[in-house]
Design a binder for these strands. Sequence first.
DNA 1: ATCTATAACTTGAAGCTTCAACTAACAGTA
DNA 2: TACTGTTAGTTGAAGCTTCAAGTTATAGAT
Lengths: 191, 191
Amino acid sequence: MMATDRPDQGPARPQAGTDTEPPWLSDDEREAWIRLVGVFIKLPAALDAQLQRDAGISHFEYMVLSRLSEASDRTLRMSDLAVLANGSLSRLSHVVTRLERRGWVRRESCPGDGRYTNAVLTDDGMAKVEATAPGHVAAVRNLVIDALRPEQVGQLRDIAQAIMGRVIPGAEWYGQLPHTGAPSPSARRPA
Amino acid sequence: MMATDRPDQGPARPQAGTDTEPPWLSDDEREAWIRLVGVFIKLPAALDAQLQRDAGISHFEYMVLSRLSEASDRTLRMSDLAVLANGSLSRLSHVVTRLERRGWVRRESCPGDGRYTNAVLTDDGMAKVEATAPGHVAAVRNLVIDALRPEQVGQLRDIAQAIMGRVIPGAEWYGQLPHTGAPSPSARRPA
DNA sequence: ATCTATAACTTGAAGCTTCAACTAACAGTA
DNA sequence: TACTGTTAGTTGAAGCTTCAAGTTATAGAT
């Protein structure tokens, strides 16, 4: 079998800019990679399935509601919320429109600086989050946490952190606990 | 702050069927989880971006072409290919239609059992994979492998394997090297 | 032989995300 | 005051995935 029959591995020659790197993945690396691909395809689908079935919302919608519920005054700027929910501003805008129609979120133009828009979680939205959280956490525990030995949880944290450092260059803040780091600044009005 | 303000954590009471489980995630668990969420949202986007920019195909399309290129006679049953590429049969069918239009794949009704359809990689398709693989492997290396210490690669393999065991119950085969396990049986004709 | 059940696959519609404009609001400058 | 540039956010279209329904081909039963 030719080397080119192993396309998950790489070329016979290194890429430009990576002249010191081994060209292919080793068997160990390849195995880890293929399994990681399985995880990042199937796990989101499993989470979406649980949330859709039990609460009629997507995982992204859940994250939006969840992040808002954690914020002071249940309020966050659209652009801050987009970062916290791991989505683009455009995606968030569409989703907030849908959440607004369902009565869980409302938009407010930021007093003092009309360029900013705040998303605010309504009482109904808060109730929705509270009703949905238990099942979601149970799913996370069942699918991920309980599958791991205690020391693997720490390993996963470090590995995920390391990958995020490459995927979003210069984002060591990633995955910081919201109540650990400062909530995104000026969520309500500009300084 | 009420407990319900931490919706990524869980309810004050355990879920049905998990009576012995702690109801919330611990801070360590929560941190690992939030970072994992970042990975499975941002990493696929980064891979898609690289492949789209350099080759004009999605990561799923790449996996389809790649799996076919590894198969004997570059041929795989649609349903087997769907599993190997981590997708639904419906999704695969749509994608193969697009790949057929681009001349990289063709369909063949399985001789001997017309219920099965084989997808076959054309010469153009093979050339496409060979041209695309180097850049893709470089991206995988850059975004994931090189971000990890050697021992973390093995940890990642085990962790991903453990999670897949929960996400796809009874799928310990997951992430097996294609050339290690037998290729999906009767890819070309029924027994 | 026919009839039923089932598995593989396809298809069209609906919904969501992405992408590329486009608008709005403000800061800085003259 | 007007002009320019920048950033936040919105919007519509295009493309992809999902979902449910429909086809086709075969095995098994009568």
